[in-house]
Design a protein around this nucleic acid. Structure first.
Lengths: 209, 209
DNA sequence: TCAAAAGTGTTGGCTATACACCCATGG
DNA sequence: CCATGGGTGTATAGCCAACACTTTTGA
């Protein structure tokens, strides 16, 4: 083996989900069961097998979260190449997003951890930097990349959900009225009645075609 | 060697340059000197060494163009993972852009080929698809990603150059007046007199800080 | 009937677009 | 002094942010 010619490539996944109860966008972590960084928090990642598709590797990676649910959609973010990112030796890491249907925290999430997207604890490897960098890419995807958006929102969502998702991913406020008008211009999105509300006017429901 | 754990990773580079004489944006190709695809046109690419930075690999790759000039700036585009993209076996390819100062065609380009960005001949490997996909990412970089933009335009450029670059990268028309106003709002860009013209009013010169 | 939550309407400002017109140069 | 190419000004439309106001529900 000419060891300079073969590389270790990992896929590190940013699992995302929107929790409509708390109206919070969260990302998934697990505690590493083995060295290096045993016991520390990390994004789910695997070494990519030769010939394996990145999406297939990402699906293997998220198995580490031990969820019953599967990601609805996956996509590429960017590739990290800092040679010292893994103490075991040089590796490349392709960062990908994986959007899940809404998960009931605790009940559906097992031993995985789901901090809010605004929170960033210290993580294993260079995962703190990966989260910091890649979550800045998400505003460009929301309401622009439809597979991503549709997977995050789910098939039906209220205008209030849309406001919450937008505010958390873009980190600045949106006005409900203006967002509703923006949603009306998105092809494939249509109004579908209203949703029951707790103590207020029932919000508009948007549904994907 | 556990052959499923190590991957072949290549960097394939989209070398870009703006030719102010013809006012054309071009990308660089070379004829492959060896199998596979011997004699066919291809993007310059190399196998990434273990522990090598992607930018370093990209700089090695563009050596295949045999240019005297070096790229002014480089950046990542996306990663291609189709397993059959190379007949020698599965590999990943990280596509990167590399922006060159303006090159006099023929004189500065040696045996490399520089088609206009709108042209896409049949290329070796999956390079036709790589060019087709990645050139769609360039409109998002122009006038947004300053290292990219500055490297493409060079330190000084006329308003006419700006129109030509924009039209070719975005594939739709811009009006000179409006583009000039947009440029005026870009931090770091300032007017710097005018350039000699051939048979018309001398165009405004823009210069980077 | 009130508070809470959300929809609707309206305004002002900004940006984009298109066009008309004016200006500087070379021949 | 004319053709050429480029700058400048302006009108219009569209979009966006902000805010006031109205509507719908549950208590």
């Amino acid at each position: 083996m000419t060891d300079t010619i073969f590389s270790v490539v990992t896929v590190d996944v940013l699992p995302l989900t929107y929790d409509p109860d708390g109206q919070v966008v969260r990302y998934g972590l697990h505690r590493r069961p083995a060295p290096p960084f045993e016991g520390e928090l990390a994004l789910p990642g695997v070494v990519v097998h030769s010939g394996e598709r990145l999406e297939a590797a990402a699906r293997r990676a998220v198995d580490k979260l031990h969820l019953r649910a599967d990601p609805v959609a996956l996509g590429q973010l960017r590739t990290f190449d800092e040679p010292s990112r893994d103490p075991r030796g040089p590796s490349l890491s392709v960062a990908m997003w994986a959007a899940y249907p809404s998960l009931r925290m605790g009940e559906d999430t097992g031993d995985s951890l789901w901090p809010e997207i605004a929170d960033l604890p210290a993580l294993a490897f260079d995962h703190t930097a990966i989260v910091a960098t890649t979550r800045e890419l998400l505003p460009a995807l929301l309401w622009q990349d439809m597979p991503f958006t549709r997977a995050i929102t789910g098939e039906r969502f209220t205008a209030t959900d849309a406001v919450a998702i937008t505010r958390q991913l873009t980190r600045h406020d949106v006005h409900r009225a203006n967002l509703n008008r923006a949603l009306a211009r998105i092809p494939g999105l249509a109004q579908a009645g209203t949703a029951p509300a707790a103590g207020g006017r029932p919000p508009k429901v948007w549904a994907w075609a």
